[in-house]
Design a protein around this nucleic acid. Structure first.
Lengths: 112, 112
DNA sequence: CCGACCTGTCAGCATTCCCTGACAGGGGGC
DNA sequence: GCCCCCTGTCAGGGAATGCTGACAGGTCGG
């Protein structure tokens, strides 16, 4: 819940998820209220599959939350909400997160 | 100086610069003190031209500052220092920065 | 002279990413 | 029947990125 000091991997995933003008725009749009894929695609003037991919990345980084709601009549709409997040980017915070970075194929052969 | 609310482009550049395990590691290493390219390359076990590129990106985002110091004997060393930065990532901060995003080829034809 | 240290730049490759149109399916209402 | 709304997935191509070895230059000390 309280994400004061995220792990290196979490921080990296969050940064990578936000490091895109499209996804920044998506977050800003969702800050005004929940929406669903097709409606967002119209609003942001972008291809629906493209928006879909970006939303998945944001969801993977736990910055947005998608909920597929199936109405009683059977029609389904997937709503997207912003996840409340607050991470402060400082050299110290980064230095604290880096040691927990999972490096693929890392040996612990760092001497000193 | 006080970078409370960065512009959209600045925020994006900062995020893009930090969204890399290598560059996070570089920032963490520089948090322990200034260093120069060759020394950092040895410490982080990475190719010098590669590190050079990453440092340039960090410098372009104004997260590190490079200073080429030419000693009186003529030998030169380029020192890199961390720039003090503190940006808090929240939905509101992003929503505030997004309108100032420079979109290449953007027409102002957004009808509500 | 040779080796060790430093900076900076280059071409080229491999990989990954971004984005597109088109398709599958579901549900209405007219 | 047709048309409109919604979701989800796919292949393919074009572009950008990450990374490498090798090169240029400089100073210093043996």
């Amino acid at each position: 819940m309280s994400r004061e000091t995220p792990s290196g991997d979490e921080l990296l995933a969050m940064l990578a998820a936000l490091a895109s003008p499209h996804r920044l725009r998506i977050v800003a749009a969702l800050a005004e209220g929940r929406s669903y894929v097709s409606e967002l695609a119209r609003r942001l003037r972008m291809n629906r599959p493209l928006l879909y991919m970006h939303l998945q990345k944001l969801e993977a980084a736990e910055l947005v939350v998608g909920t597929l709601e199936t109405a009683p009549d059977g029609s389904s709409v997937k709503w997207f909400d912003l996840a409340p997040f607050a991470v402060t980017l400082t050299p110290q915070a980064i230095a604290a997160a880096v040691p927990t970075l999972t490096v693929p194929g890392q040996k612990d052969e760092d001497k000193q």
